[in-house]
Write a protein that binds this DNA or RNA. Structure first.
Length: 627
DNA sequence: TTAGGGTTAG
């Protein structure tokens, strides 16, 4: 069908010689055979063109070029015919194609030698550098643009704003924002959307909100940006509200928006919301692809249901290493170390190779289930079979594993010989192990290193104080309290959330603001009598305040977890699982309290704390009292 | 002739 004489094409770049001798067919038809993967460039047919000065012809030819060699041919032809001087549109199109395909060696000389440049030429170059991550050249070109006396347009500015976002340079972002106002583009949709994204990613959330609220038209992507940033900044509840508002305004979510909202549910740990979102996904027929499915596994795991996470995993047609690692991590959060370990060979059998995150998840799962030998085996396997060198996260899991098992010699040996930089997580893991086993001296060492790295984190002081309290070292408890006061550090207030069908209820210690507060306290009082009869003894060591025992008891009884559990008992149907989320680690007394409550009320209580999940059932906890 | 922004695991 095509009658070509095959010959090698060797086209010198920027050749001044005419390269096409005669016109025989349309450019499109001539270039079509090149889409055939069996035809190599070197064998490609030589197109037969005649000279032409019609810019439309060249534009159409450029659009249909299938490789850079042909773009360069057209470039040379265009240069020969003087079109670069005569028609800036053709020159810009050439620039655009080179930049799109990252042929900066071609685009930059062309841009440099253009007899004239218009905003499109500048915009293409600035955008090209921005997209390619060459921030210095992007800003350099933008600066030259402004110096040339031109006013940047709504095409160029978003490219520069993107660089500020990628480099998290909010200072420069604000400077560009000033330019935006100067150039009268503050209401431009594209510019505004880019600014909202930049502020959101730089965590300048107030600025992002201000602009978002002011936007005349907000499209799906901008809504998604705001929904995502709210969840990341600990305002997942606001994310969900924003999602509802978006739908009310007639914007239909796409799959990316759904993944974002699934993440918000995961951050919130709200099971009812998670189910509602899942129903929405099903009703709108979003396919459960690898990204959405993996996000849902994570969501269910973080909402306290490893079973739903597994169901999702099981339904997915396509899985990758991220899916597998997410499921292993899900088992790990919930203390189901064996299941996490069993998933590993399944993953290998399906042809998925583990990566460093997979091993972190596995080691975490082993650690939270007290599987010391298995953890050590995974560590050797990681290094021996997969050539993955352990990083600080792997070491942290190992220290955690050894610390929980009381193998402090091994843990210290590991820490002393590790070659990667030690971080607060590593020392925190050792400190947590010391707390479990009452290792006061080692705890002091760990705390010293920890406080050198993070001197302003009150949680570390509280943990050390609890260790002293457990050992009866009240003088040291007092010293820690003084140190905290001298450093003006306050214990992070504990918050607990509990979700009912339509609402999320939040409690702080001693909270009486809830509309059903009276009922909650009555329930707590009646519960305390039953618990004492069942053998529960409140442990006031967990109260850091310097107050008398009676007051300590009072404070202990109104910890936010206990208020949330009491509300769960009165506010949810009998027999249903009570699911609560805490911002801190669960306190030892509340842990014992929850075990007793689960026994006397026959309720399953699922607590998500800052570290892991606890499933309280019939007087026992899934963590085996290691947390 | 040109452009921007949102998505999965520890």
């Amino acid at each position: 069908m095509y009658k070509f004489k095959y010959q090698t094409l060797f086209i010198p770049r920027h050749s001044k010689l005419p390269l096409f001798s005669s016109y025989s067919a349309t450019a499109t038809a001539l270039l079509d055979p090149l889409t055939d993967p069996n035809i190599h460039i070197a064998q490609a047919p030589k197109p037969q063109f005649s000279h032409t000065l019609d810019p439309k012809f060249y534009l159409s030819t450029l659009i249909n070029c299938k490789n850079v060699a042909h773009v360069r041919q057209v470039h040379a032809q265009v240069a020969t015919n003087g079109m670069l001087v005569g028609d800036l549109i053709v020159a810009n199109k050439l620039l655009y194609i080179y930049v799109q395909h990252k042929y900066f060696d071609d685009s930059y000389p062309l841009f440099d030698t253009l007899p004239e440049r218009n905003p499109v030429s500048w915009s293409v170059m600035v955008g090209g550098f921005s997209k390619n991550g060459d921030y210095t050249k992007c800003f350099g070109t933008f600066r030259d643009y402004i110096r040339s006396g031109e006013v940047p347009d709504n095409y160029t500015l978003p490219c520069v704003i993107r660089v500020c976002r990628d480099t998290r340079d909010v200072k420069m972002g604000r400077l560009i924002h000033n330019f935006v106002c100067m150039f009268g583009l503050r209401f431009d949709h594209f510019v505004c959307a880019a600014l909202v994204d930049m502020y959101a990613k730089c965590r300048a959330i107030d600025d992002a909100w201000r602009l978002f609220d002011r936007m005349v038209k907000r499209d799906l992507v901008t809504w998604t940006v705001m929904i995502g940033v709210c969840a990341e900044c600990g305002m997942a509840n606001k994310s969900l509200a924003l999602f509802d508002r978006m739908k009310e305004e007639g914007i239909l979510p796409d799959k990316v928006a759904m993944v974002t909202i699934v993440n918000a549910c995961a951050a919130l740990g709200a099971m009812h919301k998670a189910k509602t979102v899942h129903n929405y996904i099903s009703s709108k027929n979003f396919s459960l692809d690898v990204i959405l499915g993996t996000a849902m596994i994570d969501m269910y795991a973080k909402c306290g249901s490893v079973d739903f996470a597994w169901e999702t995993f099981d339904t997915m047609r396509e899985r990758n290493v991220i899916t597998g690692s997410a499921m292993i991590a899900a088992f790990g959060y919930h203390g189901q170390g064996r299941k996490a370990i069993d998933l590993f060979p399944m993953m290998l059998r399906s042809g998925i190779s583990p990566n460093r995150v997979t091993f972190v998840s596995l080691l975490y799962a082993c650690s939270h289930a007290g599987l010391v030998d298995e953890g050590r085996k995974f560590c050797s396997l990681m290094h021996g079979n997969y050539c993955i060198r352990p990083d600080v996260k792997h070491y942290t899991c190992l220290v955690d594993l050894l610390g929980r098992a009381g193998r402090f010699d091994h843990a210290m040996n590991l820490i002393e010989n590790m070659t990667v930089e030690k971080d607060e997580g590593l020392w925190g893991a050792l400190l947590a192990g010391c707390r479990i086993h009452g290792q006061v001296e080692l705890a002091e060492k760990a705390a010293k290193s920890l406080l050198e790295i993070q001197p302003k984190n009150p949680g570390h002081y509280v943990l050390l104080s609890n260790i002293y309290a457990k050992a009866g070292k009240w003088g040291d408890v007092a010293k820690i309290r003084e140190l905290m006061s001298r450093r003006r550090l306050k214990k992070i207030p504990g918050w607990t959330w509990i979700e009912t069908e339509n609402e999320i209820h939040q409690f702080s210690t001693g909270d009486r603001t809830h509309p059903r507060s009276k009922e909650i306290y009555t329930e707590l009082k009646s519960l305390s009598k039953k618990l004492e009869l069942a053998g529960y003894i409140p442990d006031t060591n967990f109260v850091l305040h310097d107050v008398d025992e009676e007051l300590k008891l009072g404070i202990l009884y109104t910890h936010s977890e206990k208020l949330a559990i009491a509300f769960g008992l009165v506010g949810t149907p009998e027999g249903t699982t009570i699911r609560i989320t805490k911002n801190l680690r669960v306190c030892g007394d509340c842990h014992t309290f929850s075990k007793f409550v689960s026994a006397i009320t026959r309720r399953v209580i699922v607590v998500r704390d800052a570290n892991r999940f606890h499933h309280f059932r019939e007087g026992a906890c899934s963590c085996g009292d290691y947390w």
